[in-house]
Amino acid sequence: MTEARKPPPLLPPRLDWFVHTQVGQLAQDGVPEWFHGAISREDAEDLLESQPLGSFLIRVSHSHVGYTLSYKAQSSCCHFMVKLLDDGTFIIPGEKVAHTSLDALVTFHQQNPIEPRRELLTQPCRQC
């Protein structure tokens, strides 16, 4: 007697999108130390709480198909949507510059402040 295989459970749309379109590209050279997967906003804030100002991580968004950049600001943690545009570039809505990869977005904001807060990303919050 062989047991019938059950199909894998369906993923929520945001995770289905990530698994089918992003994993290969993101992990091409090894998963970046600042990428934390599908953690919640609360988990991101807990991780950043003990970190120095400007520490950051990127996670799969819980509220939209895309990513969220979370970083420790002066008064609290800030969270910015990161959208994947139709041409494959990444942008923080409201900014004028699109980036070819998440890594390029991170590098850019380590040298150019995130608007409107005018704060730089300083160091990645590494995975445990």
Score class of each variant (00 low, 15 high):
3 E>Y: 04
7 P>C: 04
7 P>N: 05
7 P>K: 12
12 P>C: 06
14 R>F: 02
15 L>K: 01
17 W>S: 01
19 V>L: 06
20 H>A: 04
21 T>P: 01
21 T>S: 11
24 G>C: 08
24 G>F: 10
25 Q>E: 07
32 P>Q: 08
33 E>N: 05
33 E>R: 10
33 E>W: 04
35 F>I: 06
35 F>T: 04
37 G>V: 10
39 I>Y: 00
39 I>T: 05
40 S>E: 08
42 E>Y: 09
44 A>F: 03
45 E>C: 08
46 D>F: 03
46 D>A: 11
46 D>R: 13
47 L>S: 02
47 L>F: 10
52 P>K: 05
52 P>G: 07
54 G>T: 13
55 S>F: 07
56 F>R: 06
56 F>L: 09
57 L>I: 13
58 I>T: 03
63 S>I: 12
66 G>A: 13
69 L>D: 04
70 S>N: 14
72 K>Q: 12
74 Q>Y: 08
74 Q>E: 15
74 Q>W: 06
74 Q>K: 08
76 S>Q: 15
77 C>P: 10
78 C>W: 10
79 H>Y: 11
81 M>Q: 14
82 V>M: 06
84 L>E: 14
84 L>D: 00
87 D>I: 14
90 F>N: 01
90 F>C: 01
90 F>Y: 15
96 K>D: 06
96 K>R: 09
97 V>D: 03
100 T>N: 09
100 T>R: 11
101 S>V: 10
102 L>F: 03
104 A>I: 12
104 A>S: 14
107 T>K: 14
108 F>L: 02
112 N>F: 07
112 N>A: 00
